[in-house]
Amino acid sequence: MAMPGSLYIWSIVVGICYAVPLAITLPTASELFGLKYYGLIYNILIFNLPFGSFLFSGLLAGILYDLEATTTAGGGDTCVGAHCYRLVFIIMAAACVVGFFLDFFFVIQK
Rank of each mutant, 00 (worst) to 15 (best):
A2D: 08
P4N: 09
P4S: 06
S6D: 13
S6K: 04
L7F: 15
Y8T: 13
Y8P: 04
I9M: 11
I9N: 00
W10D: 02
W10C: 12
W10I: 14
I12A: 15
V13L: 15
V14I: 15
V14N: 13
G15P: 07
G15L: 04
I16P: 01
Y18E: 07
A19M: 10
V20F: 06
P21H: 08
P21L: 09
L22Q: 14
L22V: 11
A23V: 08
A23H: 13
T25M: 08
T25H: 08
T25I: 01
L32N: 14
F33T: 11
G34N: 14
L35W: 12
L35S: 14
Y37V: 07
Y37E: 15
Y37T: 14
Y38N: 07
Y38R: 12
G39W: 10
G39R: 07
G39D: 09
L40I: 14
L40N: 10
L40Y: 08
Y42W: 09
I46N: 10
I46G: 05
F47C: 05
F47D: 08
F47G: 05
N48P: 06
L49Y: 09
L49R: 07
F51K: 12
F51L: 15
G52H: 12
G52S: 07
G52D: 12
S53P: 04
S53N: 13
S53G: 15
F56T: 00
F56V: 02
S57H: 08
L59Q: 10
L59V: 14
L59S: 10
L60A: 05
L60H: 07
I63K: 03
L64I: 01
L64G: 05
Y65A: 11
L67G: 05
E68T: 03
E68P: 04
E68C: 02
E68H: 05
T70N: 02
T70Q: 02
T71K: 15
T72C: 04
T72Y: 05
A73I: 12
G76S: 14
G76Y: 12
D77M: 09
T78Q: 01
T78D: 00
T78F: 00
V80R: 08
V80I: 02
G81S: 03
G81E: 01
G81W: 07
A82K: 01
A82Y: 00
H83Q: 09
H83M: 00
C84E: 00
Y85C: 03
Y85R: 01
R86K: 06
V88Y: 01
F89V: 13
I90V: 12
A94M: 02
C96T: 07
V97Q: 02
D103S: 13
F105M: 15
F106R: 13
F106Q: 11
V107Q: 06
V107L: 12
I108G: 03
I108L: 15
Q109S: 05
K110W: 06
K110A: 04
